[in-house]
């Protein structure tokens, strides 16, 4: 198998991942889980690098002296004191909570726990894998994610406080 990456294939595959089409709720869950996972992973990388700068960056590998630590800390704080980062954190809160609850739902589904069982069924009946319990967990993840976003906005920026 060749190791060459074909960009046209990658673009086509990206479209398949991002456009759920008319295939229903589970396809939306697939797309959203994927997008939220990638965005949260990028945030996680940025978070590790950013918290590293609080103690002085890559060059520091032992506890520095007080003056250096204070200066590094103040620089990092002044860099982060930016409403764009706060708004970004609210989006991250939304995506993290969605990915978490939806991830629990997917683990349960992968172990066959929240799905129905195989049975005799008519053709137009709802499939057993689209059970109400499983879909309720999806909507729970959506609503908790929106709640988390509003809570984060309130905690960081005081939006809903007089």
């Amino acid at each position: 198998m060749s190791q060459r990456v074909r960009w046209s294939t990658a673009l086509q595959n990206l479209k398949t991942m991002l456009i759920p089409g008319k295939y229903g709720l589970e396809r939306w869950s697939y797309t959203l889980q994927r997008v939220s996972g990638v965005v949260v992973s990028l945030y996680f990388i940025a978070h590790v690098l950013e918290t590293g700068s609080f103690v002085g960056g890559v060059t520091v590998w032992a506890i520095p002296d007080y003056d250096f630590a204070e200066r590094a800390y103040r620089e990092a704080v002044s860099f982060l004191k930016n409403p764009i980062f706060d708004a970004g954190l609210a989006v991250i809160g939304l995506l993290v909570v969605f990915h978490t609850i939806n991830g629990v739902r997917l683990v349960l589904a992968h172990f066959g726990l929240v799905l129905g069982s195989p049975r005799r069924r008519e053709i137009l009946e709802t499939p057993a894998s689209f059970s109400n319990r499983q879909r309720a967990l999806f909507w729970l993840s959506i609503s908790l994610a929106i709640f988390a976003m509003l809570y984060t906005l309130d905690a960081l920026m005081g939006v809903f406080r007089p």
Partner: peptide
Amino acid sequence: CHFAGSCSTVCPKGVDPALAIQLLRR
């Protein structure tokens, strides 16, 4: 299989492959 459920949505015979794959995975 990431449980996107498209297979069960389109199946014209009501087979529900998504359920079978999750049970296989279990």
